[in-house]
Design a protein around this nucleic acid. Structure first.
Lengths: 222, 222
DNA sequence: ACACTTAGTTTCAAATTACAACTAACCATC
DNA sequence: GATGGTTAGTTGTAATTTGAAACTAAGTGT
């Protein structure tokens, strides 16, 4: 049973830079749109991959060098016209990493673009990115999702900033801390403090190991 | 560019029967699992369908006779081993209709099964159904989703019951009505009342036309 | 007319959330 | 080494939202 449907995987790798959500784009190696910036993507390898999640992990690693702790299926985009080669299906995933993870790769083919400053992109990649940003906004309201953007360790004011960027909204300090406390996902790194200015230093936290690869979901948001 | 990956669509059609969520299963016409009960599914038709949503609409219509007002992409399931024929990808959708819609078709090939009483099913259909039920539970907390299960017109006590079945939890009458009122999705059908017993009859409502095909999302749940 | 049942509303207490003002701790400057 | 400026973190309280109970409303059956 053979099919001529084109079957691909695309990755929306998001990070925060200059206090804004950015998406990682790579230069396309092949036709169509060869040389253009686009989402890292590729084919499913029937031999190599046991499922699309495996494919996504592999594609992300191959195209950017990154192994993201958080990778979630976003949605599947399909249609007769989205790819000039013909009827295509792409299973889109999104990944979240801290800026350091991307910069430490120092991959010249990867560039970070502000999600609010996107120019034209190949295929329906704009739509896929918009979809990912919406998903993040939504999930940030009631989960630990933004923690994956905050790095290995962070202060509570920094984490709050990260949430605010994801939600595109200001949060109240006391309420925010109550919710984080209620989630019970953080542990203080004893002895370390963030000395970053002429003021009281903030305590440094990290995710408890049980939440490093999985999400904590709140019953009631914020 | 040809591929041997099997590409299908599956539909989780849900309804409420005897105060429990039920899923519609159909007898499989073809191999594998010919004659077994399974989710209505089929191939993408490259000529006929402009995208997978079209395919899903068509598959649902063809296999059950139903055109659902609400059809949402659930998730894509894939893998080397989920289909005995080989590497496969299925884009799963879920649809919600009232029991009358299903019963009015009187399709002998379609049967409704309590989602908590499922026996073995072909492929990973159990997993797909579980996934759909989780999605419904989740979305029912903060949206008008259950309204699509309630039929064309309904009373508020009936709608509350529908929400309770979706959420698998009791709701408080006053709070529930406050939220429904806040959503502003219903209009009273003047003059009609539900006379169903030796007690005060309930008013009958229907969805405002703007919400017949789309969801209303609440900021804060319940 | 009266009992019984469910529909729908009112009232108020309890819990949650938002805001403001506070204390704490550091650096820089005098 | 006291003083002021700045951000971290906490405390107290007002405002809002939610939950529970008790009420009134409107039918049917006896």
């Amino acid at each position: 049973m053979n099919s001529t449907i084109i079957q691909t995987i695309d990755i929306v790798l998001l990070s925060i830079k200059n206090a804004k959500l950015h998406v990682a784009l790579v230069k396309r190696e092949n036709q169509p749109y060869q040389g253009d910036q686009a989402l890292p993507g590729g084919y499913v390898h029937e031999q190599e991959d046991n499922n699309c999640f495996d494919s996504a992990t592999r594609v992300l690693k191959t195209k950017t060098g990154i192994k993201s702790p958080y990778l979630e299926q976003l949605e599947t985009f399909s249609g007769k016209y989205r790819d000039p080669r013909g009827w295509s299906i792409t299973v889109a995933y999104f990944a979240l990493v801290s800026l350091e993870v991307i910069e430490s790769m120092a991959n010249p083919l990867v560039s970070l673009v502000d999600v609010d400053q996107l120019n034209e992109l190949p295929f329906d990649h704009i739509k896929i990115i918009t979809n990912a940003v919406n998903r993040i906004r939504n999930k940030s309201q009631y989960s630990s999702l933004p923690c994956f953007l905050a790095g290995d360790s962070f202060t509570l004011p920094a984490l709050q900033k990260t949430y605010e960027i994801c939600l595109d909204d200001k949060l109240h300090k006391v309420s925010f801390r109550r919710k984080i406390d209620e989630m019970d996902i953080l542990e203080e790194i004893e002895g370390e403090l963030a000395r970053v200015g002429a003021h009281r230093p903030a305590k440094i936290y990290r995710l408890k190991t049980s939440f490093v690869n999985s999400l904590k979901i709140l019953e009631k948001g914020l």
